[in-house]
């Protein structure tokens, strides 16, 4: 993975851009609030460095984890500070907030994965979303341990979203294993006839 050429990196950036574009519409539809999507960040890292690149290790995050299955293997992860998710879901009954967050992650992940699956002719499925609130490093390390079990080189696409007039931040992270990353590159090259 460290030896990816510039063209392959560009292809991965473009894939992340497509995923980012697919993020805005479902969030705006569910929450009826304007969203601003930042330019996605692409990181290729060993599994042990992923968690600390996504935030302070001991900071608490509300999170939703969705496995990516099918032609590719990976994970989609929603991360929010608890105070931000409370602000975002103020109108939602307290007992239902975790369900609401799970649903947001599920729909956003579906839109993003559907977008690249159609573009690259891949079959990508997603698991039932599961949620927890705890320290950021603990959450992400468990996910990358599963995705990176056979090869520790992982591709991470980080999409930051600012929601509504208060710009409430939400992060979606897509993590792919080495084989899936190579598949995305190969399919993208086929598309561009390179």
């Amino acid at each position: 993975m460290e030896t990816l050429d510039a063209f392959s990196k560009d292809l991965l950036r473009e894939t992340a851009n497509i995923m980012a574009q697919k993020t805005a519409h479902p969030i705006e539809t569910i929450l009826r609030q304007k969203t601003v999507i930042s330019k996605p960040e692409i990181m290729m890292q060993k599994m042990e460095f992923v968690a600390d690149s996504l935030g302070q290790p001991d900071e608490v995050r509300d999170s939703v984890f969705i496995r990516i299955l099918g032609d590719g293997k990976g994970a989609a992860v929603l991360l929010m500070k608890p105070e931000d998710s409370q602000k975002l879901l103020l109108d939602v009954d307290k007992a239902m907030r975790t369900d609401a967050l799970r649903e947001i992650a599920n729909i956003v992940a579906g839109a993003c994965l559907g977008g690249i699956a159609r573009l690259l002719s891949l079959k990508l499925m997603q698991s039932v979303p599961v949620a927890t609130s705890d320290m950021s490093r603990a959450i992400v390390n468990e996910i990358v341990s599963e995705v990176g079990l056979t090869n520790a080189d992982l591709l991470c696409a980080l999409i930051n979203v600012a929601i509504g007039p208060e710009n409430i931040p939400l992060s979606m992270v897509f993590i792919f294993d080495t084989d899936t990353t190579n598949l995305i590159i190969s399919k993208s090259k086929d598309m561009t006839n390179q």
């Binding site: 320290m135 390390n141 341990s145």
Partner: peptide, 12 residues
């Protein structure tokens, strides 16, 4: 007299 510390232990 040193101490060792680590944070954010989940499945690790």
């Amino acid at each position: 007299p040193d101490s060792l510390s680590t944070v954010g232990i989940g499945s690790c």
